[in-house]
């Protein structure tokens, strides 16, 4: 009698322990997913901030130049694409496109010393560079959160829970190598 009671207690204890562990894993999955979403929202804020700086920049450049419409058009299009992007992949592509267009502008700017030296342009360049760095930082934080989340989704035993409750792996915010580099100036 005494022995069987002990066995029952033991079984109950193990069951409780397992449930507690499962609940813990589930909760950690949820909080990791929340973190991914939060970091993505951060990236979005910075992307939008970047897009918001563009009209000002374009106007400043237009004030000093008259026939650089091609470069400016590319920037405007890239900005619209960025604002319309919805998935992580689209966003990172549109962001790269804007970077390429802006780099082309910076090359053109070299031909306009007055523009380059104007206080307004220097300030806008700083804001843009700062925002680009914020995007880079937010992207790193987002990717770190995704790594942690994806690892949980794949690893045993959380992968079982992830399967049951439909936690799917998330996309990284990729940055294409080369596009971030400043293009070479050709004469």
């Amino acid at each position: 009698m005494k022995k069987s009671t002990m066995i029952i207690f033991g079984v109950v204890a193990v069951v409780i322990l397992v449930i507690a562990m499962l609940a813990g894993s589930y909760n950690s999955l949820v909080s990791k997913e929340e973190k991914v979403d939060k970091e993505l929202a951060n990236v979005d804020v910075q992307l939008e901030r970047r897009a918001d700086l563009i009209p000002n920049l374009v106007n400043t450049v237009k004030g000093y130049t008259s026939h650089e419409t091609e470069v400016i058009d590319k920037i405007t299009t890239a900005r619209e694409n960025l604002l319309n992007a919805s998935s992580v992949e689209e966003k990172s592509e549109a962001n790269d496109e804007l970077t390429t267009a802006l780099n082309a502008l910076m090359v053109v700017v070299e031909n306009y010393p007055d523009l380059k030296a104007s206080e307004n342009f220097i300030q806008l360049s700083d804001e843009l560079a700062g925002t680009e760095n914020r995007i880079a930082t937010a992207r790193r934080d987002y990717n770190d959160a995704v790594t942690s989340y994806n690892t949980s989704v794949k690893k045993f035993p959380t992968n079982i829970l992830a399967g049951i409750f439909g936690f799917e792996q998330k996309d990284y915010f990729e940055v294409s190598e080369g596009k971030t580099e400043v293009p070479n100036v050709e004469f």
Binding site: E119, I122, Q123, S125, E127, G130, T131
Partner: peptide, 11 residues
């Protein structure tokens, strides 16, 4: 201290 200002201060 927006970015533009920090840049100008450095300059």
């Amino acid at each position: 201290l927006p970015d533009g200002k920090t840049g100008r201060f450095q300059d």
